[in-house]
Design a protein around this nucleic acid. Structure first.
Lengths: 140, 140
DNA sequence: AGAAATTTGTCCGTATGTATC
DNA sequence: AGATACATACGGACAAATTTC
């Protein structure tokens, strides 16, 4: 079969599935995830795709991998009190100005603006989303 | 050809080389890196290895990649310029979640969210607009 | 201690999808 | 619409670290 990835790419679907297994306790903290080979069988994808999914979880600090041993589910991030740990994901994109933004920047509605969106996640779920808008001009 | 990677893996050697080019100004901030294809030719490795090298730089926030465009060297983190005067205007309001925000917060599209909008003005003109979104009820 | 098996790490080549120019 | 460039996915091969026998 070719490689159509309509909607979400497969590696992200797999990453989300593994994430929920960890958060639901199906894969308890500190235990090893199934091996990459086992996951290729379960999800019917190549090893590269599995590795991509695990890499995504690793970026969220949800798992840690050791050469020759395997990939562990990380102990619970403490959700207690101060010192709460959050992960941030930032992306830049061009959006068209809504009427309010257009007025503020003194441009026409629909003009392209640069939007930087930062998602603050705690335990994988978004807690706050920040969007900053700036005019598109060059050189930054 | 086999795959001997004595010492450092190739993707890391390439990442280090690109890093020094950026830091030494050979690739100025804001400009595009050579395309992945060009880099495969220059370093004599496959595209996957080049992508691995660029991914490493991306994790260090040294570059940013845009689908279909290319990979940029990040602008210098600018230190706050002295003497810049800005006025801030902040307002809170309830808005209904667009599909993207709804997905992030795991609520239904249209659910009410708290939006805090801050407008930074310089010389009376808006320079940056920041909008933060949070769920309404939450325990934060 | 040593050898084999297991598991993750690196790298290649190819093909196709998707976004941008 | 065509060309260019990055994104996703496959399958294979070998290297390196760990565990097991």
């Amino acid at each position: 079969m070719p490689t159509p990835h309509y909607g979400q790419p497969r590696y992200r679907v797999i990453a989300d599935e593994l994430r929920s297994r960890i958060e639901n306790g199906v894969i308890p903290p500190g235990t090893l995830l199934p091996t990459e080979s086992a996951l290729t069988v379960e999800f019917g994808v190549s090893r590269g795709t599995i590795r991509q999914a695990i890499a995504a979880l690793r970026e969220d600090h949800l798992v840690a991998t050791e050469h020759g041993r395997g990939t562990y589910a990380k102990p619970n991030q403490r959700e207690g009190e101060l010192g709460m740990v959050a992960e941030f994901e930032t992306q830049n994109r061009k959006v068209s100005a809504d009427p309010e933004l257009a007025a503020l920047f003194a441009v026409e509605t629909g003009t392209a603006l640069l939007e930087q969106q930062t998602i603050a996640r705690q335990n994988g779920r978004a807690s706050i989303v920040v969007r900053t808008y700036r005019p598109l001009q060059s050189s930054l």
